[in-house]
C-alpha cells in the first residue's frame, strides 16, 4: 500500500453482503484528493458494489448488510446522522448506461441545482459552466431546449457528466462510463477526465486496461470481492506485486 497524504476517501474493513452472498471482503483503501483512481477487475468482482457504497446508492436495495467504515472528507458515510441527500450531492455519479432524463438538455443539467433551490439567472450560469466543463457546450449550445434523448450516445454520457458536475460535487464516481461508447466518444471522455481531475477526486471503474493506464494515477485491482492490490498506476502496470494482478493485466486471466 502506498502512503497517501490527506486522503479524500478512506475505506476501512468494508464487508458487504447481499442477503447471504458476500460481495465485498474486508476492503481497506485510501483514495487521494484530486487524482483519478481506477478500479479494475473481472466482472462480478464487486467494483460497482464498492462504488455504490460511497454514495449510499445501495440503500435502495433490500437486504444489504454492511460493516466497516467509509469516510469521505470529514463525513462518515454510514453514520446514521448523515444527510443522505447532502452526501449524494457531494459525491456525484456517472453510470455505465447513460441515463439522461426525458427532458431538455438544459433541464437535465439544471435538475440538481433546482432540487437545491437555485433559480433563474444563476441557473443559466451553472448550466453553461457545467456543459463547458463536460466539453459539451459547443455541441449543444444552440439546442439547449431540445430533448436530451436526441443527442448521440457519447453526447448523452457527457451530458450525464455535466449533470453530475452541476451540483458541484467533491468526488465523481464513474462506473464504466465508456463501455457503451465508440472509440472517438471514448477518447473525448478520457480527454475530459484529464482536465476534471485537477478539480475533482475521480473514481473510475473500467474494463479497459489501456484506459486505466492512460487516465488514472492510482489503480486498485479487485478479485472476487477482495482488493488484491492497490498502488500507483505505473507500478501496477509495470511491476505488480501480486501474481494475480500480473495475470489479469497481461490477459492471462479469465
Amino acid at each position: 500500500m502506498p502512503t497517501i497524504v490527506d486522503p479524500m476517501i478512506q475505506v476501512k474493513e468494508l464487508n458487504l453482503k447481499y442477503g447471504e452472498a458476500q460481495a465485498l471482503f474486508n476492503v481497506t483503501l485510501e483514495i487521494p484528493r484530486r487524482k483519478a483512481t481506477a478500479f479494475i477487475g473481472p466482472s462480478g468482482c464487486g467494483k460497482t458494489t464498492l462504488l455504490r457504497c460511497l454514495n449510499r446508492l445501495n440503500d435502495l436495495i433490500e437486504n444489504v448488510h454492511i460493516s466497516g467504515t467509509i469516510r469521505i472528507g470529514e463525513t462518515y458515510v454510514y453514520d446514521p446522522q448523515v444527510d443522505v441527500s447532502d452526501l449524494r450531492k457531494r459525491v456525484g455519479m456517472v453510470f455505465q448506461k447513460s441515463n439522461p432524463f426525458p427532458k431538455s438538455t438544459y433541464d437535465n443539467v439544471a435538475f440538481g441545482p433546482r432540487i437545491f433551490g437555485i433559480r433563474n439567472s444563476r441557473l443559466d450560469e451553472i448550466v453553461e459552466r457545467s456543459l463547458r466543463a463536460a466539453a459539451l457546450w459547443d455541441e449543444v449550445k444552440d439546442r439547449l431546449h431540445e430533448s436530451a434523448l436526441s443527442l448521440s450516445g457519447g453526447q448523452q454520457q457527457r451530458l450525464c457528466i455535466a449533470r453530475a458536475l452541476a451540483v458541484e460535487p467533491e468526488v465523481l464516481l464513474m462506473d464504466e462510463p465508456c463501455s457503451a461508447l465508440d472509440p472517438i466518444a471514448t477518447a473525448k471522455i478520457e480527454e475530459l477526465l484529464h482536465t476534471l481531475k485537477n478539480e475533482y477526486t475521480i473514481v473510475i471503474v473500467t474494463h479497459n486496461m489501456q484506459q486505466a493506464a492512460r487516465v488514472s494515477d492510482y489503480t486498485g485491482f479487485f478479485l472476487l470481492g477482495e482488493l488484491v492490490e492497490f498502488d500507483e498506476t505505473p507500478r501496477i502496470f509495470t511491476n505488480p506485486r501480486d501474481r494475480r494482478t500480473e495475470d489479469y493485466i497481461t490477459g492471462r486471466f479469465g
Binding site: L57, S85, R88, G92, F95, F101, F111, I115, A164, V167
Partner: peptide, 23 residues
C-alpha cells in the same frame, strides 16, 4: 436508471417521484 440518476444527484425519493417519474 432514471430513478437512480435522480437519487444520485441528491434528490429525495419524493422529489424523484415528483420531478422525474411523474412527468
Amino acid at each position: 436508471g432514471m430513478r437512480e440518476a435522480s437519487l444520485a444527484l441528491g434528490a429525495t425519493k419524493f422529489e424523484t417521484t415528483w420531478r422525474v417519474v411523474l412527468p
